[in-house]
């Protein structure tokens, strides 16, 4: 994990998942229990609002600071499902979740604290287990996200079907 963090923006992100595809771990290469490389990122209001808009969720708790201050949240927050983007924001381009053809089979997530604009999020990510079922290969992986106070904001586990 690198020591530095900067405000994360879409301009920083390489959307070409074919690039470096051969560098990514295949099913055989995944080492259950080993923590994989990740990087801290600072989440901006813009990142949160782009995500909220994409799911049609215009809740003023994400957009209207004056309103949000009057609520029990005391300020802007993000949708609890914001971790959907953390996995890609906090990992490097050679992370196996970017492998073309990776199919999400299911997820479980515990939500502990709201994520706010300006929070710096770090990820501890591992593959935990590997499965072959009906001829397909699967990985089970867990992800724990912390904020700049080293407080866990959410933790979860997922199953993906691996293309190779």
């Amino acid at each position: 994990m690198s020591e530095t963090s900067s405000a994360f923006s879409a301009e920083d992100f390489d959307y070409d998942f074919w690039k470096d595809a051969e560098k990514r771990a295949g099913w055989d290469d995944l080492e259950p229990g080993e923590v994989v490389e990740s990087r801290p990122v600072t989440i901006t209001a813009d990142i949160i609002q782009r995500y909220a808009r994409s799911i049609g969720d215009m809740n003023p708790l994400y957009f209207d600071e004056e309103y949000a201050k009057t609520t029990r949240f005391g300020g802007l927050i993000s949708p609890p499902s914001i971790h959907a983007l953390f996995l890609f924001a906090c990992t490097t381009h050679d992370h196996f979740m970017r492998t073309p053809g990776t199919v999400n089979m299911g997820q479980n997530w515990w939500i502990q604290h709201p994520v706010r604009p300006g929070d710096t999020i770090t990820l501890t990510a591992r593959c935990l287990d590997k499965v072959i079922r009906k001829g397909n290969t699967f990985a089970i992986h867990d992800n724990v996200f912390r904020n700049q106070h080293d407080t866990v904001v959410c933790s979860g586990r997922g199953w993906t079907m691996r293309p190779y």
Binding site: Y15, F17, R50, Y51, S54, I55, A84, L85, P100
Partner: peptide, 11 residues
């Protein structure tokens, strides 16, 4: 959603 969530898998 692919752009906003940074999951641009070709699927």
């Amino acid at each position: 959603f692919a752009m906003a969530s940074f999951d641009n898998n070709p699927l």
